[in-house]
Design a binder for these strands. Structure first.
Lengths: 125, 125
DNA sequence: ATATATAGATTACACGTGTAGTTGAAAAAA
DNA sequence: TTTTTTCAACTACACGTGTAATCTATATAT
């Protein structure tokens, strides 16, 4: 479990596609992202190259085409980002952070029940 | 309630000092931060200037010295960052995010009780 | 066999950021 | 009054990022 490299916002969009479906070619990714961005194909190539360099992804070649797949797992990334956010904004105070989200955001009754269930399970153990 | 400007990591350290105690001079800030960073005074000046430009802070002059104070409130910043993090990493799924934090981080029994209390209050309303 | 399309590699370029050094003007000290 | 200190302003400079355009080599179509 190596360090999770820094992944920029644009790069993250690529990662998300690969986490959903890999291996994928640059064109596959282009298709996925054409709805939400208007990136040119070269932009995607650039981002892919940078991600390879950072060892966030890797690829295998077949007939002059690269099939990319993630090296960094989504779980790892999410964990790392969460920890970093927690530290940067809340100085690491998890409870404060969660309390803050609970208080300032909208939650349905179902959401609330779900979270309570998790809390209960957590306590038992 | 204007938009919260982009505040970088280094700038955030300055903001945190000002949120704790304002108005403050560059030297005051230097003192506060000398324990946790080894920034040169000019670095702090630069960051202060950038924050003024972004209208995250402002200042009043007295005897050729600037007394800085925040324009962006901590609450506003924290809210904005939280929302942005939530969207970027979790696609906006608050419950998923909280559930994830609850599951992967350590929580004391007291923490758990506190959070449950918040949830209960939330539901009543 | 030659022209064209295609994939990846290389180059580009502006803007934000981290981190200062230098300059200029005013205040304080000598 | 001349020197020194002290602010803030201006300049610097490398690196990451967002976003491509161009180049090069191969594959494909004619």
């Amino acid at each position: 479990m190596n360090e999770v490299p820094q992944i920029s916002n644009s790069e993250l969009k690529i990662m998300k596609v690969l986490w959903k479906k890999a291996p994928a070619t640059a064109n596959d990714i282009m298709d996925h992202l054409s709805k939400s961005t208007d990136w040119k194909p070269t932009t995607i190539k650039t981002l892919l190259s940078r991600l390879v360099k950072k060892e966030a992804i890797d690829f295998e070649e077949e007939n002059r085409t690269y099939y990319y797949y993630p090296l960094v797992k989504e779980k790892e990334y999410v964990k790392a980002e969460g920890t970093s956010f927690l530290k940067r904004v809340y100085g690491g105070a998890l409870t404060v952070m969660i309390a803050n989200f609970l208080e300032t955001e909208e939650l349905s009754d179902e959401d609330i029940d779900e979270l309570k269930t998790i809390l209960n399970k957590k306590k038992e153990r």
